[in-house]
Amino acid sequence: MKTVDIDRRSFIAKLGGAAAVLTMAPELLAEELEDEMIRELDNSFQQETPQQQETEDPPKPTHRRGTGRVFTNMKELPPLPDKPTFIDFFNARFAPGRHVLQSANHAVETGQPERTIFACLVHDVVQGLVRSDHGYWGAQLFAPYVDERVSWGIRYHQALRFFPDDEVGYEYPEMYNRIFGKDYEVEDYIKKDYDMVRNHKWYMESRLITVNDQYGFVPGYEPSIEPFIDIIGRQFKQPKEGLGYDNSPSAHMWRTLQNPDRPL
């Protein structure tokens, strides 16, 4: 399986150099790497000249590393309707979403349950809002609108990605070893969550997200949201008031995604 390739030296330089990397928590390093892979995947659809690739220096950070993409991309955001749906948000705030679309498409191709397909489709979209601890934030974002097993799976896929499972063909990501070294250790809360999840009856809800996640970094492959419309309709409980206006526990998160320029 061909996936996007990350240049180790360039990536570490973007993080501030080897000395800066040594001070960063392992979980943050993993978040940075996944974000870089998603950016590289999206950039694979944009043409750059060899001269651009050779001469452009890595940009210096202008924001906190865990900041969501709606706060770091200063391009004008498409407006949302008065009663926005999940599909409205996907197209206007989460697009292009190639990584999650590819992950969900792999779940379809391998005949996985519809609930798993939907979980793969949404497991990383919260990174538009916040990147740090994205599994936990993502679970909170979707919990009022989905089967409890879906939000549970989203929450704990963040921990499971660091731990292999030979029975389902999930290996420890070699990219972590190549970029960070063999002595890479996750934080205690990640280990504790893994120990709990490994013995939980819903273990596979999270594990299958990590399995399909591996197939979400294929350059040159751009699936569409259209084949998932019916699945979204069955798996997502769309509020009649519109996302952000239904007084759910996560309504404020959807409003923030709708208007990240709101000062208060």
Rank of each mutant, 00 (worst) to 15 (best):
K60P: 00
K60T: 08
H63E: 14
H63S: 11
R64V: 09
R64M: 10
R65G: 06
R65V: 05
R65H: 08
G66S: 08
G66F: 03
G68N: 12
F71E: 01
N73Y: 06
M74C: 06
E76H: 07
L77S: 11
L77W: 02
L77Q: 10
P79C: 10
L80Y: 04
L80S: 03
L80A: 12
D82C: 06
D82Q: 13
D82L: 15
P84K: 03
P84T: 00
F86L: 14
I87D: 03
F89D: 13
F89N: 11
F89A: 10
F90T: 00
F90G: 01
N91R: 04
A92V: 05
R93C: 05
A95Y: 03
A95E: 04
P96D: 03
G97I: 01
R98G: 00
R98L: 10
H99S: 12
V100M: 04
V100N: 00
L101C: 04
L101M: 07
Q102S: 07
S103K: 09
A104G: 05
A104F: 04
N105G: 05
N105F: 06
N105K: 08
V108K: 04
T110I: 08
G111T: 08
G111R: 09
G111C: 07
Q112M: 14
E114L: 12
R115M: 14
T116D: 13
F118P: 01
F118Q: 00
A119R: 02
A119V: 05
A119H: 04
C120M: 06
L121A: 01
L121N: 02
V125I: 13
V125L: 06
V125T: 09
V126R: 02
Q127Y: 01
G128P: 09
G128T: 07
G128L: 05
D133C: 09
H134C: 08
W137P: 03
G138P: 03
A139C: 13
L141T: 04
F142Y: 14
F142M: 15
F142I: 07
V146D: 02
V146W: 00
V146Y: 02
R149G: 15
R149W: 07
V150C: 07
V150I: 15
V150H: 00
S151W: 00
S151V: 02
I154A: 04
I154W: 05
Y156D: 03
Y156N: 06
H157N: 11
Q158Y: 11
A159W: 01
A159H: 08
F162M: 12
F162C: 12
P164K: 04
P164T: 15
D165Q: 14
D166P: 10
D166R: 15
E167G: 15
G169Q: 15
G169W: 09
Y170V: 06
Y170H: 15
P173I: 05
P173M: 12
E174T: 13
M175R: 09
M175H: 10
R178G: 14
R178I: 12
I179V: 12
F180H: 06
F180D: 00
K182G: 07
K182I: 08
Y184M: 11
V186N: 02
V186L: 09
E187Q: 13
E187P: 02
E187N: 12
D188Q: 14
I190H: 06
I190M: 05
K191L: 08
K191D: 14
K192W: 10
K192Q: 13
D193W: 02
Y194H: 14
V197R: 00
R198H: 12
R198S: 13
H200P: 15
H200S: 12
K201P: 00
W202E: 15
W202N: 15
